[in-house]
C-alpha cells in the first residue's frame, strides 16, 4: 500500500500515466478555479484572487511541462538508459495528484480569515478581520494538511524522476534538487508574466 502511495510508477508509467495525469491536471485546474487556489510555481500552493479559468489551466499545464522538460534534459544527460519522453511526462503528470486534493482546502473560508487576521494584527496591513478559535484550529489543520500533501507530492515527483530516468543514489537526489530549483525559478517567472497578461 505504501509502495502504491509513494511510488506507483513501479506499476504505472507511459501512456496510461500520461492520460491519467492530464485528467488530474484538468480536474485540478477546474477545482482551483472554483476554490481560488493557485500554484505560482511547481511546488507552491496559495490562495488567489479571482482569475479567469484560463489562468488556472495554463498554470497547471505550464508547471507540469516545465518540470517535465527540465527532468527530461537531465535524464538525457545523466542516465545510462534509453529514456522515453512519455515516461517522464506521464509520471510527472501523475505525481501532481496530491495537489488535486490540495485545491479542496480552498472550500474552507477559515484560512482566508486567518490570513487576513495575521496580516492585520502582525503586519498591520489590510482590513480588520476577526477569527474564532474554531477558525484558528481549522486553519492550522489546513496548513499542516497542505504541508503533508507537499511532502507527498515531492516524494512522488522524486520517485517519478528516479524511475523514469533510471538514475540512482546520491546522484538522483542532487539532480532532482537541481532540476526542481530550476523548475521553480522558471515557473515563478511564467506565473508573473501570466498575471501581467491576465
Amino acid at each position: 500500500m505504501i509502495q502504491i502511495l509513494f511510488n506507483p510508477f513501479k506499476y504505472i508509467a507511459g501512456i496510461k500515466s500520461l492520460l491519467l495525469g492530464i485528467a488530474i491536471l484538468i480536474a485540478t485546474s477546474i477545482l482551483a478555479f472554483y476554490t481560488n487556489i493557485h500554484f505560482p510555481d511547481v511546488i507552491s500552493v496559495k490562495s488567489s484572487s479571482d482569475f479567469p479559468y484560463i489562468y488556472y489551466l495554463i498554470q497547471c499545464i505550464s508547471n507540469w511541462i516545465v518540470v517535465s522538460i527540465v527532468f527530461y534534459i537531465i535524464a538525457i544527460l545523466a542516465s545510462p538508459s534509453k529514456i522515453r519522453i512519455v515516461d517522464i511526462f506521464g509520471t510527472q503528470a501523475l505525481s501532481r495528484f496530491p495537489y488535486l486534493i490540495a485545491t479542496l482546502t480552498g472550500f474552507s473560508t477559515s484560512l482566508d480569515n486567518f490570513e487576513k487576521y495575521i496580516y492585520y494584527t502582525i503586519l498591520k496591513t489590510g482590513e480588520f478581520a476577526d477569527v474564532t478559535d474554531y477558525e484558528i484550529i481549522i486553519s492550522i489543520l489546513i496548513i499542516l494538511f497542505t504541508l503533508a500533501l507537499t511532502i507527498w507530492f515531492i516524494t512522488l515527483m522524486f520517485n517519478a524522476f528516479r524511475t523514469s530516468a533510471n538514475i540512482k543514489g546520491v546522484k538522483s537526489v542532487i539532480l532532482f534538487i537541481a532540476g526542481l530549483l530550476v523548475s521553480i525559478i522558471i515557473t515563478s517567472l511564467i506565473t508573473n508574466q501570466l498575471i501581467q497578461i491576465i
Binding site: F9, K10, Y11, I12, A13, G14, S17, P80, S81, K82, R84, D87, T91, T163, S164, N166
Partner: peptide, 17 residues
C-alpha cells in the same frame, strides 16, 4: 510481470551492468 515499462527497463539495465 504487471510492472511499468521503465521499472522493467531499469531491471534489465541493472542486469546488463
Amino acid at each position: 510481470l504487471k510492472l511499468s515499462y521503465p521499472t522493467v527497463r531499469n531491471m534489465l539495465d541493472e542486469l546488463i551492468e
